[in-house]
Nucleic acid binder design. Structure first.
Length: 247
DNA sequence: CAAACATATGAGACGGAAAT
DNA sequence: ATTTCCGTCTCATATGTTTG
């Protein structure tokens, strides 16, 4: 929906897009809103888990947020939370007790809803959720490893001959409205490209791959020495020692 | 993990080739 | 069979902050 709007406007500076989205969509439809994090369940087409109640501090924050926003219009949210935390430490004990009491009641209700939810959930849905959660953890792990590899300076895989050609045609990108079209066109060119030009790119790529292979092996050896085994391809790892297997 | 949300980073889509 | 490499754009998620 917001995508169409951007298309109609013909430009898409990210900040404008953001503000448009924020203005056009109801609060709960904004994916940033944790209350709508149920998108996880939506995608699985499975009933959403009941949400944990807000802690007394969170309820307090929700109360004073409008005031804080007015008082400190230029402060970041994270700053406002800090200010809120300060006020919370010496908040009127009556309010504190009231919110704490409310929280306790909501926790009781939440626990009830939770057990009810878990008992109502079909075994198939339970399986679905478990699988999705595991997959989600997997993705998280992948992201972490990728990030770590980047930080540790893992040599990048070189460009294939085709990729080299693709990048050499970046200047043509502006001739196409759709990115896909550009790629399609370049891949057409690639099929009928001058064999000599193609061969040159292929030899270059081949050499790149050779030196990359060498660099990568060197890097992986270093990583093993430094104990960063998780960023090393399993094929580059020494075979499992028998002692370890026995133990 | 509940809330707020601006801002930063990441991933999917799309092509083909080639390493794993 | 799957992943990676490049480009761009779009959409998704992580980050920063706090308490219970």
């Amino acid at each position: 929906m917001q995508g169409n709007l951007v298309l109609k406007l013909g430009f898409s500076p990210s900040h404008i897009q953001l503000s448009l989205r924020q203005r056009l969509l109801p609060l709960c439809a904004q994916q940033k809103c944790a209350a709508h994090k149920q998108s996880f369940y939506d995608k699985l087409n499975v009933p959403a888990k009941p949400k944990k109640p807000m802690s007394p501090f969170f309820m307090f924050m929700a109360q004073i947020r409008p005031t804080l926003n007015k008082e400190y219009p230029d402060k970041k949210i994270t700053e406002l939370v800090k200010i809120g935390a300060e006020r919370w430490t010496n908040v009127d004990s009556k309010l504190r007790d009231k919110l704490t009491q409310q929280y306790k009641e909501e926790v009781i209700n939440y626990n009830k809803l939770k057990t009810e939810y878990e008992s109502k959930l079909s075994p198939e849905d339970k399986e679905k959720i478990k699988r999705a959660e595991l997959h989600s953890l997997d993705l998280k792990e992948q992201r972490k490893t990728k990030q770590k590899s980047k930080e540790l300076g893992k040599p990048k895989r070189p460009l294939t001959a085709f990729m080299k050609y693709l990048t050499s045609r970046v200047s043509e990108r502006n001739k196409y409205t759709e990115h896909k079209e550009w790629i399609k066109s370049v891949s057409q060119e690639w099929k009928t490209l001058n064999p000599q030009v193609k061969a040159k790119l292929e030899t270059e790529s081949k050499q790149d791959f050779e030196s990359w292979n060498h660099e990568l092996k060197k890097w992986e050896e270093k990583m093993i020495k430094e104990g960063n085994v998780d960023v090393v391809r399993s094929s580059s790892l020494p075979p499992l020692s028998k002692t370890k297997l026995k133990q």
